[in-house]
């Protein structure tokens, strides 16, 4: 990583911004398409429902979807303190998508790092109990940059599907995070089974994520079903309904096993 420019205003502003945040919860998966954004967006809603003051920062460049899930986000307002995120269902939400409104974001790694720094420096979260961060879906330098700026009391929840590929990427992610000293709160297995009437179908088997957890002595937080209802509410932008789906209720159980909700 390039050395820090001490005259960069963002290096001064970011630590101050984060001081107002009690806990930074990073949701990471290493790759896209596993439900990381749906888990992030729903986690923020669940925490807010449990009376926490919550922010959601969407750094998922490949598919920033919190804007859709939250039913279309207004632009942050420009105040003296910086950019103040709009509040939806009690969650302060900041996403790159608020700026590009669904346009592609064809930027290189260096440019992504600039955008992340700028967003962290300019966003005025105010006093916040938990900032949920939908992390960049990769295991490279953009992820490392995010980790290096998101300092403070922090922990990560890792999301995987039962597929071998997803598990392999999360395996690599665990090793990377342990090198950077980020505490891993646990692993969530998403899209683990399909529930058809009384039948539960688990096309990829059930043991992968659990095995991975025990290999590294990390807590297995639970598994989330493939839930067409959750997917529908996400697409339609109905966050108020998301938390009461099977997906949402199971996710809440997972979160209750962590320091966030106990």
């Amino acid at each position: 990583m390039s050395s820090r420019n001490k005259l960069d205003y963002r290096e001064v502003l970011i630590p101050k911004r984060l001081k107002a945040i009690k806990y930074i919860l990073m949701i990471a998966s290493g790759k896209g398409g596993v439900g990381k954004s749906l888990v992030s967006a729903t986690t923020a809603l669940i925490l807010a429902k449990n009376n926490l003051n919550v922010g959601l920062l969407d750094l998922d460049f490949h598919g920033p979807s919190s804007s859709v899930i939250y039913g279309g986000l207004k632009m942050p307002s420009e105040e003296e303190e910086g950019l103040v995120p709009p509040v939806v269902e009690g969650v302060k939400v900041m996403s790159i998508d608020q700026f590009v409104e669904g346009r592609p974001i064809p930027v290189s790694g260096r440019e992504k790092r600039e955008i992340i720094k700028e967003l962290l420096a300019l966003t005025h979260w105010g006093d916040t109990d938990v900032l949920v961060v939908d992390m960049p879906p990769e295991t490279g330098d953009v992820l490392l940059t995010s980790l290096s700026y998101l300092r403070g009391r922090r922990g990560a929840i890792l999301v995987t599907t039962p597929s071998k590929l997803s598990l392999k990427v999360v395996d690599r992610l665990i090793r990377l995070l342990s090198e950077t000293g980020v505490e891993i709160l646990g692993i969530i297995e998403n899209m683990s089974r399909l529930e058809l009437q009384d039948k539960k179908v688990s096309p990829f088997g059930l043991e992968g994520a659990k095995e991975l957890s025990s290999k590294y002595n990390i807590r297995f937080l639970g598994s989330l079903p493939i839930d067409p209802e959750a997917s529908l509410y996400a697409d339609e932008g109905k966050p108020e309904k998301l938390i009461y789906t099977r997906f949402g209720l199971e996710l809440e159980k997972c979160l209750k096993k962590t320091v966030l909700l106990d």
Partner: peptide, 18 residues
């Protein structure tokens, strides 16, 4: 006005350097 935030950051960074 996010210019004010940026300028405050710059003044602080330069002061820190001094």
């Amino acid at each position: 006005m996010h210019e004010l935030v940026i300028v405050s950051g710059i003044v602080e960074a330069v002061s820190d350097l001094a």
